[in-house]
Computed example of a mutant assay.
Amino acid sequence: MSWKNPSSKRIALLKVTLFTVALLPLAKLGHAAYTDSLGANPIEKITHLTGYWALTFLLITLSATPLRLLTGWSWWLRLRRMLGLFAFFYALLHVLTYLVLDQFFDWPAIAEDVFKRPYITVGFSVFLILLALAATSTNAMVRRLGGKRWQSLHRWVYVAACGGVAHFIWLVKKDLTRPLTFAAILGLLLIVRLSRLLHSDK
C-alpha cells in the first residue's frame, strides 16, 4: 500500500512510533537529571530544553498542512493533534519548571516577573493559548463548539507560534542562531498559510 492512501494499521503504527519518538527528549532529560549531568545550573538547563522542544513541536504541528500540500498525502493532518498536544506537554513542563523549581510558588515574585519582563509576559500568554487549544482538542469539543468556531479558535496557534519565537529571541542574549532559525521556519510556514488563504479566495 502506498503512503498516499495508507491503511489504518499503518497509521496506527506511525502514531505509536511518533509518540515514542516525541518522548525521547523527556527521557534524555530524565537520564541527564539521574546522572547529575545537567551542568552547573540544572534548573536553567531544564527550562531551556523544555521550552526548546515545546517550540519545536509547535512548528512541526504547523508544518502538517504544508507537508500535505507538497506531498499530496492527507494523513499528515491525522498526526497534527498528537503533535500539538506534545507541544503543550513540553510547554507545561517549561512553565512548571519556572513555577516550581525556579520560583518555588512565590506568587508575588511570579506576578512581578510577568508584568515587568516582556519575554515572560509573552511566554505566559503563549502558554494560556496552548492551554485553551489543548483543552478544546477533543472530538467532543469540536462538536460542542461547532466546526467554524473551533477552527477560528485553533487559528490562534499561529499567534502562539509567533509569541513563542519572540519569547525565545528575547530570552537568548548572545547567540541568536537557534531563535532566528525558528523565526525563519515560522516565516516560511506563515507564507504558505497566507498563499493558501489567498488562493482559496480566488
Rank of each mutant, 00 (worst) to 15 (best):
P118Y: 13
Y119R: 12
Y119H: 13
I120A: 13
I120N: 10
I120T: 11
I120W: 14
T121E: 10
T121P: 11
T121Q: 09
V122H: 05
V122D: 04
V122M: 12
G123T: 04
F124N: 07
F124A: 13
F124Q: 08
S125Q: 07
S125Y: 09
S125E: 06
S125A: 14
S125N: 06
S125L: 13
V126D: 00
F127C: 08
F127N: 04
F127W: 14
F127G: 03
L128E: 03
I129Q: 01
I129K: 01
I129T: 01
I129C: 02
L130I: 05
L130Q: 07
L130C: 09
L131D: 04
L131R: 07
L131Y: 08
L131V: 12
A132H: 10
A132S: 14
A132E: 10
A132I: 13
L133M: 04
L133G: 01
A135V: 11
A135P: 04
A135T: 09
T136M: 05
T136R: 02
T136L: 02
T136V: 07
S137K: 05
S137D: 09
S137E: 09
S137Q: 07
S137V: 05
T138S: 15
T138F: 11
T138A: 13
N139E: 15
A140Q: 13
A140L: 07
A140P: 06
A140T: 11
M141I: 14
R143N: 12
R143F: 08
R143K: 15
R144L: 11
R144D: 09
L145D: 05
L145S: 02
L145P: 02
G146F: 06
G146I: 05
G147V: 07
G147F: 05
G147T: 03
K148C: 06
K148I: 11
K148E: 14
K148Y: 09
R149H: 06
R149T: 11
W150E: 03
Q151P: 04
Q151K: 13
Q151H: 15
S152H: 11
S152R: 12
S152E: 07
S152G: 08
L153A: 08
L153I: 12
L153S: 11
H154K: 07
H154I: 08
H154D: 08
R155M: 14
R155S: 12
R155I: 12
R155Q: 15
W156T: 12
W156F: 15
V157Q: 03
V157T: 12
V157P: 00
V157C: 02
Y158S: 00
Y158W: 14
Y158D: 02
V159L: 13
V159E: 00
V159N: 01
A160F: 01
A161R: 01
A161K: 01
A161F: 03
A161Y: 02
A161D: 02
C162G: 15
C162H: 15
G163I: 03
G163L: 10
G163E: 09
G163M: 06
G163Y: 05
G164P: 03
V165K: 01
V165L: 02
V165G: 00
V165Y: 00
V165C: 01
V165H: 00
A166M: 15
A166T: 12
H167Y: 10
H167A: 07
H167S: 06
